[in-house]
Design a protein around this nucleic acid. Structure first.
Length: 376
DNA sequence: TCTGGGGTCCTAGGACCC
DNA sequence: TCTGGGGTCCTAGGACCC
């Protein structure tokens, strides 16, 4: 494959930064985003002190992170570590609005964008960097740096927000690179930088190596990406299987041929909710049934709004011990009807043991297609 | 300290068909 | 009656990501 020039752009503490545009007086203070929307009983922004509930942190400002809290952490635990940090509920409509704004701004500079969620994108800069070869610096990576700085400025002008960018020959390395100098950083790496900049990092920095795989690697004495790169591929294949093991070896050497995918169809749509208190399948039957129907209505609404129908209806249930089970059922014909979804999901519910309290209930629909279009 | 909500992809067994 | 291999769909669970 000819050399490519791929950027990964990651918005800095995105949700929290959007909130700081709204509450500039909070700038410089520890703030966490998370939990449910409260009633309008007070206008003062509460601290974490005395928080009780099941919420987790979705984003923390850098000042809050300095106190030891991070996204994914339960708010109860965060309250013990940083009782004076301020707590704001998430406002996803607003974050989606800013997400569209920053993506449009980038697209105006560099159109080859892959959406990776609300706050990050990959950008294929290859054509841009090659087409400007005649003008600017002779080194393509120096030209890529100029383009990336331009993108950061454009994002800031369009949103008032900062982002960090990594630019390398592929998505895997760019994802790592964008995280090396946050916030507001720009890191350009080439293959020659892999031993010095990538190999000292922990294996968890590789996108796709999560807590489970990292623990198993640790048990093999492999902690850094460099150690993973030097490991015998046969050992990795033996531990993780042919496909996963071979991928780890390639990743550790910084090799990744995945293209930047500028368009993809959704595969599934789902809604789920964790109850404030665990519900009893018999005693709380009516409340459960109401919530269940409501989830189906929301899924149907999402389908209709987005213009899809689906064939496979799924149920998800999490017990009070956090064990999660799923059931699904494929219909003969695709649907976007709340009643049809409710009946299919109800059948799924009958196939699940209801012998303990329930923490979470979810409804999913997959095998999506566009009505009117031929089946995929 | 018990751990949200929205997704994707992979694996693996069984059914069913050729 | 027994022996096969391949392909696809369905289902359940799990890892991982933002």
């Amino acid at each position: 494959m000819p050399l490519r020039c791929i950027a990964h752009l990651d918005m800095d503490a995105f949700y929290a930064s959007v909130e700081l545009l709204r509450y500039p007086e909070l700038r410089g203070k520890p703030v966490v985003i998370g939990g449910r929307r409260r009633g309008a009983e007070t206008t003062a922004i509460p601290t974490l002190r005395g928080y009780s509930g099941r919420g987790v942190i979705t984003t923390a400002t850098y000042e809050a992170r300095a106190l030891g809290v991070h996204s994914g952490m339960g708010l109860m635990k965060a309250a013990r570590l940083a009782p004076d940090a301020l707590l704001l509920p998430a406002d996803f409509d607003e974050y989606r609005r800013y997400s569209r704004l920053f993506k449009e701004a980038v697209r105006a500079v560099a159109p080859q964008i892959e959406d990776r969620g609300i706050d990050e994108i990959y950008i294929d800069l290859t054509d841009l960097v090659m087409s400007t070869a005649a003008e600017g610096a002779p080194d393509p990576w120096a030209r890529a740096r100029v383009v990336a700085v331009d993108i950061q400025r454009t994002v800031r002008e369009a949103t008032g927000l900062t982002c960090s960018i990594g630019v390398t020959p592929n998505k895997l390395l760019s994802k790592i690179a964008s995280d090396l100098d946050k916030p507001g950083g720009l890191t350009v790496l080439t293959e020659a930088d892999i031993p010095t900049c990538i190999w000292p990092l922990p294996v968890r920095k590789i996108n796709g190596i999560g807590p489970k795989a990292a623990a198993r690697l640790d048990a093999l004495g492999i902690r850094t990406i460099g150690e993973l790169a030097q490991a015998d591929p046969a050992l990795l294949v033996g531990e993780f299987g042919r496909s996963h093991g071979a991928w780890m070896h390639e990743a550790a050497h910084g090799r990744d041929a995945r293209p930047v995918v500028t368009y993809s169809e959704p595969k599934s749509i789902s809604r789920e909710t964790t109850f404030e208190d665990d519900l009893h399948p018999v005693r709380d039957r009516e409340q459960l049934s109401r919530i269940f129907t409501d989830l189906c209505v929301k899924v149907a609404g999402d389908l209709q709004r987005k213009g899809y129908v689906g064939k496979t209806i799924g149920l998800k249930l999490r017990y009070d011990n956090f064990k999660t089970v799923t059931r699904d059922r494929t219909l003969d014909e695709a649907t976007a009807d709340a009643g049809v979804i409710r009946r299919a999901a109800g059948e799924c519910l009958k196939r699940v043991p209801l012998d303990r309290r329930i923490r979470l209930l979810g409804v999913r629909i997959g095998a999506l297609s566009k009505p009117g279009a031929r089946a995929p």
